[in-house]
Simulated assay, not measured.
Amino acid sequence: MRSISKLLTCLACFVCAGCSKETSNQNRYLEGSYSGKFIVNYKNQDQTFTGDVTVRFKADSFFCTANKNRFPAGGSGTYKIVGDQIIFKDKNIWTADFDWALILNYDYTYSFDGKDLNLSKAPYQNNSYIYKLTKD
């Protein structure tokens, strides 16, 4: 019985290691620095704001620059790619006096052609959050 338990534990470790390696390989696909524009459209207010932005990817970490007006607010932490989504996990502590969707955090649909990277947050409270980036 103990041998079977050991075998199952080893098998589970092997499967997890394979998953981790696959995610790591996908993340290397994006490694580098990207510059471009951040665009937020507040549909209820009929207002659009833009800001210059740089996003850097290294291994499973990301760093996003911020602007004084918080368009975007920035962010840094870890990320993983799942299908056509990049899931960002910001590690910072934030004040409560602005729209937290301006932080590069949670799920974004992405497209990447080897040079241009576009990130789009699913409509959140009817607003859109888009990063249009080009690899430096």
Rank of each mutant, 00 (worst) to 15 (best):
S33E: 15
S33H: 11
Y34C: 02
Y34F: 15
S35F: 10
G36V: 07
G36A: 03
K37N: 15
K37Y: 12
F38I: 08
I39G: 01
I39M: 04
V40C: 12
N41W: 10
N41M: 11
Y42L: 13
K43N: 09
N44H: 14
N44T: 14
Q45I: 07
Q45H: 07
Q45V: 03
Q45D: 11
Q47V: 11
Q47F: 06
Q47A: 07
T48Q: 15
T48N: 04
T48K: 15
F49M: 08
T50I: 07
T50V: 08
T50A: 05
T50C: 03
T50H: 04
G51P: 00
G51H: 03
D52V: 04
V53H: 01
V53C: 03
T54I: 15
T54R: 13
T54W: 00
V55N: 02
V55D: 04
R56T: 13
F57V: 13
F57C: 13
F57E: 14
K58Y: 11
A59L: 11
S61Y: 08
S61H: 13
F62G: 00
F62W: 06
F63V: 06
F63W: 15
C64L: 02
C64S: 13
T65Q: 04
T65F: 12
A66Q: 06
A66M: 03
N67Q: 11
K68F: 03
N69A: 11
N69W: 08
F71W: 12
F71P: 00
P72S: 09
P72V: 11
A73V: 05
G74V: 07
G74Q: 11
G74K: 01
G75E: 07
G75I: 09
G75D: 09
S76L: 09
S76I: 04
S76H: 09
G77Y: 00
G77P: 04
Y79S: 03
Y79F: 15
Y79L: 05
K80Q: 10
V82L: 12
D84S: 10
I86T: 07
I87Q: 02
F88E: 01
F88Y: 07
F88L: 05
K89N: 12
K89L: 05
K91W: 05
K91C: 09
N92C: 07
W94L: 01
T95M: 01
A96P: 02
D97N: 07
D97Y: 06
D97M: 05
D99T: 12
D99M: 12
D99A: 14
W100N: 10
A101C: 15
A101G: 14
L102Y: 11
L102I: 04
L102P: 01
L102E: 03
I103G: 00
I103A: 03
L104S: 04
L104C: 06
N105A: 05
Y106L: 11
Y108V: 05
T109P: 02
Y110S: 01
Y110L: 05
S111H: 04
S111M: 01
S111G: 05
F112M: 00
D113H: 08
G114H: 12
G114S: 09
G114T: 10
K115R: 10
L117M: 09
N118R: 11
L119S: 00
L119K: 01
L119T: 02
S120R: 13
S120G: 12
S120E: 15
K121A: 05
A122V: 13
A122C: 12
